[in-house]
């Protein structure tokens, strides 16, 4: 292990080390703490300039209630779920299929298709913005959640295919030979061998995709305008414009946007890290 572990017998050294790490962590998360604390403050304190002193009264419940009742945040939140969940499921299905084919079938152009999926994934979003927007307008999907779902499924399929392909390619070759020798068709192999074995990868991918899609802002502002369609990210940006100095409310709104991915992360931390680092430590 590097750095050299502090010996378990050096109790005071270990405690001191933890204290130092906590100190650095507080600085590291300082900006976030500031926002969390502000979201607890009452409007009077914020307007009166008491932003760091002891609050004269707590506004925790009021602030969050206000965010959900006086702003369309609840609607945004629901929209985000309506966009994110089907998108994640769609990407999981498509990328499992394409990853299976790309990892297990040698055909001319296999590498090219793979390179296109990977390369496309690195393209700047702006290069496809105008045609995608135009496409959605022509399909009559502009300013609908469906427009965002279609785009996210298409775009994330690139990354997810890379992910699933590498995972399936790492499964032992002999398992697939055994399945073939026993007369399983490719489809049977997919259903009975591949899918049960890639469950951990699907979990890791699902949490990553959830975070990516939930956090998307660019496409939200490109493809939607109505409050009834907008996800939380675009919604938060709107609130910022409307509630210029009501930092307690903006802070509460920020926390509402941030909470779902953070919860997902803490629930499935192992999968999240595994997904993010896949490929990074390989080879």
């Amino acid at each position: 292990m590097y750095p050299r572990p502090i010996p378990e017998t050096a109790i005071w050294q270990r405690r001191l080390y933890v204290a130092v790490v906590i100190g650095i962590l507080i600085v590291w998360l300082g900006p976030l703490f500031a926002v969390v604390l502000t979201s607890f403050r009452s409007m009077q304190d914020v307007m009166g300039g008491n932003l760091w002193g002891w609050p004269t009264q707590f506004g925790l419940i009021e602030n969050y209630t206000a965010v959900f009742t006086q702003t369309p945040m609840a609607q945004y939140f629901l929209n985000s779920l309506i966009i994110t969940i089907p998108s994640v499921i769609g990407v999981l299905i498509l990328s499992t299929l394409s990853g299976f084919v790309l990892s297990r079938y040698r055909f001319p152009g296999n590498m090219l298709v793979f390179a296109l999926f990977v390369g496309g994934n690195f393209l700047p979003h702006q290069i496809m913005m105008i045609p995608v927007r135009d496409l959605m307008v022509r399909l009559g999907l502009y300013d609908t959640t469906m427009a965002l779902i279609i785009f996210h499924v298409a775009f994330q399929t690139g990354f997810a295919t890379l992910f699933m392909r590498n995972f399936i390619a790492a499964l032992p070759d002999e398992l697939f030979q055994a399945a073939r020798a026993e007369g399983a068709t490719p489809f049977q192999t997919l259903v009975h061998v591949v899918i049960p074995l890639v469950r951990p990868a699907l979990a890791a991918l699902a949490i990553l995709l959830f975070t990516f899609i939930w956090n998307d802002y660019f496409w939200a502002v490109v493809l939607t305008i109505s409050d009834s369609v907008k996800p939380v990210t675009a919604g938060l940006a709107n609130l910022r414009g409307e509630w210029v100095s009501a930092w307690n409310l903006i802070s509460a709104g920020t926390i509402v946007v941030a909470v779902p991915p953070v919860i997902m992360f803490f629930l499935m931390q192992k999968h999240f890290i595994a997904g993010l680092t896949m490929g990074a430590v390989k080879g």
């Binding site: 498509l94 990328s95 299929l97 394409s98 299976f100 084919v101 790309l102 297990r104 079938y105 055909f107 298709v113 296109l116 999926f117 496309g120 393209l123 290069i127 496809m128 913005m129 105008i130 045609p131 995608v132 496409l135 279609i150 785009f151 499924v153 298409a154 775009f155 399929t157 690139g158 295919t161 068709t185 490719p186 489809f187 997919l190």
Partner: peptide
């Protein structure tokens, strides 16, 4: 023909969606 038809059919949805929405759009820009 299923030995090559199955993989072709399986990769089609992802390939078509990705090429139309992402790749073709980029070229169109």
């Amino acid at each position: 023909h299923r030995w090559w038809l199955t993989p072709t059919l399986l990769i089609m949805p992802a390939a078509i969606l990705f090429s139309v929405v992402i790749l073709a759009s980029s070229v169109e820009s």
